[in-house]
Amino acid sequence: MSQTNSITDVIDQSEHRGALSRLASHQTFWVFMAALLACLALSMLTDTFASERNLFNVSRNFAFVGIIALGMTAVIASGGIDLSVGSTVVLSAMTVAVLMSSGMPIWVGIPAALLVSVGVGLVNGALIAYAGMPPFVVTLGMLSVARSLAMVLSNNKMIYEFGPDHAVLLGLGGGSTFGLPNPLIVLAALAVLTGFLFKWTRWGQHIFAMGGNEQAAKLTGIAVRQLKVSVYVFSAVTAGLTGILEVGWLGGVTTNLGQAMELSVIAAAVIGGANLAGGVGTAFGAVVGALLIEVIRNSLILLGISTFWQGAFVGSFIVIAVAFDRFRNARSSD
């Protein structure tokens, strides 16, 4: 016993000595540095970036992408993909908007919106886990279905009147606490929670095991089907939560809310180190990835580059991040 202890001690020491070099080998670290550098460059190149108003906007947008990127990281780490998050955002937003504008209180509107999101996740998860359909196909279908439902629900009209709890809803998404925008606080809390779940619970361990080798996970008796469903529900709930916050921030909701958001979210997760092949990803990485995307997007606007270029940047980022990962894996597997 004492012998094995001394062995682990030695390993401990050698690992701590390498902590700094290990940090430098992490993609997340470099993405974080890149985001930081971009921020510095922008505050020197433009007078507007560092203005309180702009920072407020950037941090809020970043929070919306970041929150869903946490859910997306769980899905990607499990070996799947969720293309329906952008549509879940608008469906959730529309649910809360329609209910509240019809006079319902906020404590009915928000749980209802979250429940609808859970429903979306359950349908995605059940079709993938129990019917054995590919995640890409199922969630692509849901992308279309959920947005269509949002249109049906609202009759494709803008909603900007939210009944008796109007001010509460707007305060929730648009207000701030201790000088920080509320969505940012939600992001921080959710990131800590997700990080904890990933690292310290069996649920998290099993997600990564399933993403690493689903067959092995199944053979060891892990209930992979239920696990898959739970992952898609988690992702849908982060999207639903974002939908609720975004209504409050925008003060109104139209059916094009969250359009193409899945791309930014997937880009954030992948840039943050999540591996589309499954088994790899961190909560902190998702947040950092979202930060970099939002800073770049903001910089395009501030530098006067046409917003038409945004899609090109986000798309290229996904490809570059994946290529980077491929390159690294090819080298380390020699």
Binding site: F208, Q215, A217, L219, T220
Partner: peptide, 21 residues
């Protein structure tokens, strides 16, 4: 198993305890 039911992305200890952490 012939193809070893093991998760490459996890540590040795995590693999030993997989499913019964």
């Amino acid at each position: 198993y012939q193809d070893l039911a093991i998760c490459n992305n996890l540590s040795a200890a995590s693999n030993v305890f997989l499913g019964r952490e």
